[in-house]
Write a protein that binds this DNA or RNA. Structure first.
Lengths: 284, 284
DNA sequence: ATCACTTACGGGTGACGTAAAAATC
DNA sequence: GATTTTTACGTCACCCGTAAGTGAT
């Protein structure tokens, strides 16, 4: 059988074209590569190179061998990734979400269904989420649209309504609701990792500026102490109910409501069955 | 990266169930395997085994790793085979044929088209030929039927007519032609490796006995010296034209004529283009 | 007592580096 | 003279075996 280090060296020689270049890439010396390539030829029992005195080039056999070597090395890496992912998924559930709101309620729910597992949440873009679901990084992702595919299970998991958080003295604080355009141009303090909401507010209020704050407690204090407009949602109001000196005005229009969907791979659905059933029940 | 020997040992442990059994299979000692499995766990950064004091069992991670390991080892073997086959095909052409007749004329033809290559001929059954063509053992095979498939090129390459070789005093030696059934029950001397003709004569003359002779020169002498019926074909008569004391009676019926087809893989056809063109021309 | 796994220690193979030579550009 | 490959030689890592220990059947 052929040792892995020989495959790596062969692949490097194929990519670099010369032994010296490959040696540099691999942090080895040329003589070492010379010996390795000779050893490969004896192992295959076949010439892999065309040699002139000062030059060594992969021949037809060598090119095939190098391509196979790369393929095998890729499979080996994939093996490591798969095993690590499997191990991780056995001790933790990693959920990727398009925005943090639904996780405030979903995380405790998952904890209650799988008390022994650690729950990790990541806020990412839709493309990253779908990629991560495919490669096993996420056992579950939360999107803001339905995702139909035979490869996944997709169930709705609630909505989130955006509100303006205004000081009582604000000119619009008495309105029963308020549109994005009415507030366009005003400046806001905003939590940093709000996921997809970031796109929405920048799109709906292109003339506004948004001051980002990564610490949620600091943000709360700033909001309390200032008269700057800010945002809350129905979910954050439920989860972090606090006495404040703020008025919360629901934002009108479809853009201020997100409909969330919980997506997991069909081939993983069995492992998550209890969670999915719980989610289904909660929705009804 | 993970060394190949570790993959082999992991695969063996998976198959054998215990370290000691695997050690025996691999001609190693248990302590060596213990160390290797520990090393694998550190390389993966993941537990691969459930351990009790006296027992070590692959866990979910370990089973996945072992299955991947087997897969990778298989690919490594396949790599070696492919490279060796490619090398062989670059210096020799191996042709498998259903019977030897067509090769008497095909071999010299191939030699003339590819003077630097060695030609090897093997007589095999149809199943073996098709298998060998698929796995690269044969660059070309000769069948006695048309073989239509998008994966291959198939062109007719001549026919072969079977004759009885009879002593002049034989009761049927004056006939212009003769059927198998008229000779059924008589005993023949026959060359050993006549491929598909063997099936035909045994099928057509079930009451006859056939004395096999593996040496073709010895067979010729025996035929010359005895009055036993034998066989020739139009091809052997053309190729080995000799003065003999025999009469050659063509055998009547479709079973006594073979139609041959030259088959090569479509993905190899480019390399054999000159030969295929020459064959095409010869047929016209 | 036997079996199975682990730990500890020593040895030998072999992979790598250094040095130097040969050949090409 | 610079670059590239090859050969020669010394060194060190590491893989394996032996021996001994622990716990389970």
């Amino acid at each position: 059988m052929i040792d892995t280090y020989l495959l790596e060296q062969l692949a490097a020689v194929h990519e670099c074209g010369t032994l010296s270049a490959a040696a540099e890439k691999l942090h080895l010396t040329q003589p070492s590569l010379t010996r390795s390539m000779q050893k490969l030829e004896t192992l295959f029992g076949v010439k892999l190179f065309d040699r002139s005195k000062n030059r060594i080039v992969l021949n037809e056999n060598g090119v095939l061998a190098a391509e196979c070597a790369k393929h095998i090395l890729a499979e080996e890496n994939e093996m490591i990734q798969r095993v690590r992912t499997l191990d991780r998924s056995s001790r933790m559930i990693t959920v990727g979400a398009i925005s943090p709101g639904p996780m405030f309620e979903l995380s405790p729910l998952i904890s209650s269904v799988y008390p022994s597992k650690t729950i990790t949440t990541e806020i990412r873009t839709e493309d990253e989420l779908i990629q991560g679901l495919t490669d096993g990084t996420y056992q579950m992702i939360i999107l803001n649209r339905e995702f139909k595919s035979p490869a996944v299970h997709c169930i709705p998991c609630g909505t989130e309504q955006l509100y303006f958080s205004l000081p009582p003295e604000h000119r619009l604080s008495q309105k029963p609701e308020c549109s994005f355009s009415e507030m366009n141009g005003e400046n806001f303090v905003v939590a940093q990792n709000i996921g997809y909401w970031d796109n929405i507010i920048r799109e709906q209020m292109p003339d506004s500026k948004f001051f980002l704050q990564d610490n949620i407690d600091a943000l709360t204090e700033i909001v309390q102490a200032s008269t700057m407009p800010a945002f809350v949602t129905d979910i954050t109001l439920r989860v972090f109910s606090r006495r404040t000196n703020r008025v919360y005005i629901p934002i009108s229009g479809e853009a201020a409501i997100e409909h969330f969907y919980c997506v997991c791979r069909a081939d993983e659905a069995l492992k998550l069955e209890r969670l999915l059933q719980t989610l289904q029940r909660r929705i009804q």
